[in-house]
């Protein structure tokens, strides 16, 4: 009977997936004109249909809100309004049942994007006046080419760097390790010893 009971308990524990759960993670990175966010549980399960709020870190004012897809991902456009604020952003994931976590996106990350937009504006003004470019000096023509080239390179870089950025961001996840578990058990043992010590002292008196 006892063997049966132990066997059943082991079977039940075995049936439920053993994983390092129960906190929710969010990771965000800036690529091109958007902020890509991904939310998961430490076990690797994705947060499906969870809410991600993009907030101003200081004031906690929500600027945008989106639901995650089946892969736990959501992306936000970096609008002029966001850039004009010149503030760090905070992405907040709400996975339901009281699960929440945040990820800070510094303004410096968004800043690179703003310079790209301004350079685009410059290019735009140049190309809108084709007769001017015809009459312009060779020096300005090369500067236009340079800007176009820069934009092109940054676009290609964004595309190429996406998986690298994604992986680097996900690498920052702090997983639960065996030392964590053993430390917890050790603390419990230690606390047991301390309580015995104080009880013994109390009994002595």
């Amino acid at each position: 009977m006892l063997k049966k009971a132990i066997f059943t308990i082991i079977l039940i524990l075995g049936l439920t997936a053993l994983a390092s759960a129960h906190r929710v993670n969010i990771f965000c990175f800036v690529e091109g004109k958007k902020i890509s966010c991904e939310a998961n549980y430490p076990s690797g399960d994705k947060v499906k249909h969870g809410t991600i709020n993009l907030k101003e870190a200081e004031t906690q004012k929500t600027l945008a809100s989106k639901k995650t897809d089946l892969e736990g991902k959501a992306s936000f456009e970096i609008t002029q309004d966001i850039l004009a604020r010149k503030k760090d952003l905070e992405a907040e994931v709400l996975a339901g049942m009281g699960h929440r976590n945040t990820w800070t996106i510094p303004y410096s990350d968004l800043n690179a994007e703003s310079s790209e937009i301004s350079s685009k504006e410059n290019t735009g003004s140049n190309t809108s006046l084709p007769w001017e470019s015809n009459t312009s000096t060779p020096a300005s023509a090369t500067s236009v080419d340079k800007q176009e080239l820069e934009m092109l390179i940054s676009k290609i870089m964004d595309k190429k760097l996406h998986p690298v950025l994604e992986k680097l961001t996900l690498l920052q996840e702090r997983k639960i390790s065996l030392p964590d578990i053993l430390a917890g058990l050790g603390y419990i043992l230690g606390l047991m010893g301390i309580s015995f010590y104080f009880l013994a002292k109390k009994n002595e008196k």
Partner: peptide
Amino acid sequence: ASLIHVPLGPSS
């Protein structure tokens, strides 16, 4: 025991 979990919907 909290390390033994079951994924369910958007939560686990």
